[in-house]
Amino acid sequence: VGDQVLEIVPSNEEQIKNLLQLEAQEHLQLDFWKSPTTPGETAHVRVPFVNVQAVKVFLESQGIAYSIMIED
């Protein structure tokens, strides 16, 4: 199991704000291929294997929908 690319769908401005804060966490080494800008629009982010669980827990705790787009 390696890195994953998640497709994330924020449903409101609050969730977009939370994702932008997540993007700013440099220690997570997230690679946003497509940043969140509009509710209902997908964002794509590559998550290093060591941080996959932490990111998924965060998304679930914020009620942000996501799916695994690419499993490496």
Rank of each mutant, 00 (worst) to 15 (best):
G2L: 09
D3W: 14
D3Q: 08
D3R: 06
Q4L: 14
L6C: 02
L6F: 15
L6S: 01
E7V: 14
E7Q: 13
V9G: 02
V9C: 13
S11I: 14
N12R: 02
E13R: 07
E13V: 10
E13P: 08
E14L: 10
Q15K: 02
Q15P: 00
Q15E: 05
I16L: 12
I16K: 02
I16F: 07
I16S: 03
K17L: 12
K17P: 01
N18P: 02
N18L: 15
N18V: 15
N18H: 13
N18E: 09
L19I: 07
L19R: 00
L19S: 01
L20W: 12
L20F: 11
Q21N: 11
Q21E: 12
L22C: 04
L22P: 03
E23W: 15
E23H: 12
Q25P: 02
Q25D: 12
E26Q: 12
H27A: 09
H27E: 11
L28K: 03
L28W: 14
L28V: 04
Q29I: 05
L30V: 10
F32S: 02
W33R: 08
W33I: 13
W33P: 04
S35F: 14
P36E: 02
T37P: 06
T38R: 09
T38Q: 10
T38V: 13
P39Q: 04
P39D: 02
E41T: 07
E41F: 06
T42Y: 07
T42L: 07
A43E: 01
R46H: 12
V47H: 00
V47M: 02
P48L: 05
P48F: 04
F49P: 03
F49H: 08
F49L: 10
V50D: 09
V50T: 10
Q53S: 10
Q53M: 12
A54I: 12
A54R: 08
V55I: 07
V55L: 12
V55N: 00
K56S: 04
V57R: 13
V57K: 11
V57P: 00
F58I: 07
F58H: 03
L59E: 00
S61M: 11
Q62H: 14
Q62M: 14
G63L: 05
G63Y: 04
I64H: 00
I64D: 00
I64E: 00
I64R: 00
A65S: 09
Y66D: 00
Y66R: 00
Y66C: 01
S67M: 08
S67W: 10
I68T: 05
I68F: 05
E71S: 11
D72E: 14
D72I: 15
